[in-house]
Design a protein around this nucleic acid. Structure first.
Lengths: 345, 345
DNA sequence: CTGAAAGCGCTAACAT
DNA sequence: ATGTTAGCGCTTTCAG
């Protein structure tokens, strides 16, 4: 039943030419190989007529290029990552590449499995948001001369292409903004994890604490929360025990969501008094009440820079020495949640 | 520099056996082909030692199976789609398949390009959320005997596997709920597009209008809004011109977001009086004020059913006749935005 | 200008 | 029980 795909050989036979000729013509090398216009057109016409498409698999096997890139994120269903994915998709297609997305759930085991999996498939490059323990796996990719660039997080001291934001600065930006609006006792809510981007965010907070000499007040939730409910409990306790806080910087999207749920349910008055800032924007933050001020990562730019570095690696087969890094700045989307109290309704 | 990948041939040579033997062992056919334990172990050990991975590309070329599935959605960065993607990813990996995600932006042209692209790559199956004009392209896939199943939307009368929700019922469910809470003049805000799922939602609304004999009041925004701003203008005008409305059913996520922005900015009192329901949930709807009642699609189940149908197609190479459809029910996540007025604070 | 043929890495029917 | 060998569909060198 399966209609057999037509191959280059079939075309050659049908047209009484050799496969070589067909291949040359198809690959636009007709001129270069000085194949007659007549033959060239005959082939082109026929190919169009039967709507022939070369078998990419065979092509890849032969050329060693699969034109496939892999983007490995923590969880593709997370807003920040899915936005990133969308931008990568478009950028890659422009260049004739496809992108495979996959989620590693921040697990080393899953990350390694996935990398191996795609490596077997000879993908042409990796863009990886790495979990903490896969430094060696990534080094092994580099040794095989497979282009990799890291995104969002990196490994201290590793020689590798990397694109991220200035997390320390971003936190500072947030606290500065709070400070300017009269909030001078800010808490920092984050996750207890050794990811570089999280450490940077914490650092920025601590630095600001010194400069403005307020007392550090940080809550680090366990990475593997059993449930949202557990997270809410912890936050609730934290708010109860620290009534003096006048503002909060949430280090990720997800925490903001939990935090707002708790505030909304258990401290309905506080939600309008506290200064609130979240890392990573989301379209819906603007319709919360109060609308939430956000530290925004320049997603498009991040993707663009990553692609640049990656394609440089792809096009330069020799092991290069200088690895490019790009640290971008975040921007602040100011909304109601950080308005000075006197200005609020 | 590029370390040459070791091939089955290298292994054979090194071990003084034939490639066949290696291939059989690697494919777990040692028993079946009655290859001695000794040889089997020798091969297995060596393979493990040098960490050999077969070249999937070559394998695919040979077997005609790529173990790759494609999920084509409208926009991977949309919450509903990225959630779906995540579930598909997990389900597929369980079965040894990978999933390529791509976004068609609801454009026929892009859809067709993408389908051709992946078709050339011999993917093993397609899961497609189709744009309106690609019925023929999909038929051509079927003719080539390539497994396809449609999701979310379908083509009237087409013989094809399909998974979706009962949109008519879902709308009814929403309006019924509003009605029970004393809202009996609901509007319906949707997009002016001929997608089956949207038509179903409209139908449900109209049906309810007849049954409860309220006057239909629908707003259909153009599909290609120039900007969010334009959308907001239209909504604002609509709210102004229809002050008698006591509730709204938004037919998609995105519209809800626009609508809430408008309400928040221009009708701050109304936002607490209107009954509001949205199609498709989002984690952040629960922290809006009021928290928004949502009609939830059973994403996990949808993915599961789709996979079932798809794998049935994949494993049954002969053109089957009976096509399976699965229409699932939505559920209602009741929140503040539809509380009867008397109950509200 | 065009064709023959080798070979990418793997599978599996057919020999031994 | 193991080996030989013919492809899968394509690119590309080398010979006309």
């Amino acid at each position: 039943m399966k209609k057999k795909r037509v191959s280059i050989k079939d075309i050659a036979k049908h047209l009484n030419v050799s496969v070589t000729t067909v291949s040359f013509v198809l690959n636009g090398k007709a001129k270069e190989k000085r194949i007659s216009e007549e033959v060239t057109n005959k082939i082109l016409d026929y190919v169009k007529k039967i709507n022939y498409k070369p078998n990419q698999l065979a092509q890849s096997l032969r050329t060693g290029q699969s034109k496939i890139l892999v983007l490995m994120v923590e969880d593709i269903s997370n807003y920040f990552f899915s936005k990133l994915a969308r931008v990568f998709e478009d950028l890659a297609y422009e260049k004739g590449y496809k992108v495979l997305f996959c989620s590693n759930e921040n697990s080393d085991k899953k990350s390694i499995e996935l990398i191996d999996l795609f490596n077997e498939r000879q993908v042409d490059g990796f863009i990886i948001i790495p979990s903490a323990g896969i430094e060696n796996k990534i080094k092994s990719l580099q040794q095989q001369n497979i282009p990799v660039v890291l995104l969002d997080r990196f490994f201290e001291g590793m020689e590798i292409g990397y694109v991220g934001i200035d997390n320390r600065y971003a936190s500072r930006q947030g606290i500065d903004h709070l400070n300017m609006n009269g909030f001078n006792s800010p808490a920092f809510v984050s996750i207890d994890v050794q990811q570089t981007q999280m450490l940077g965010r914490l650092e920025g907070y601590q630095e600001a604490a010194k400069e403005y000499s307020f007392k550090e007040k940080k809550l680090l939730l366990p990475y593997n929360l059993k449930s949202n409910e557990q997270g809410r409990e912890i936050l609730k306790k934290f708010f109860n025990e620290n009534p003096e806080l006048d503002s909060i910087l949430f280090a990720t999207n997800y925490l903001t969501q939990l935090g707002l749920e708790v505030l909304k349910n258990d401290f309905p008055e506080k939600i309008h008094q506290l200064g609130i800032i979240t890392f990573d924007d989301n379209a819906l933050f603007s319709i919360c009440t109060p609308a939430i001020t956000a530290i925004c990562q320049p997603i498009e730019n991040m993707a663009k820079e990553t692609m640049n570095i990656l394609f440089q690696l792809i096009n330069k087969p020799t092991q290069s020495t200088g690895f490019q890094n790009k640290i971008l700045k975040t921007s602040l989307e100011v909304r109601e949640s950080t308005k000075a109290l006197i200005e609020r309704v």
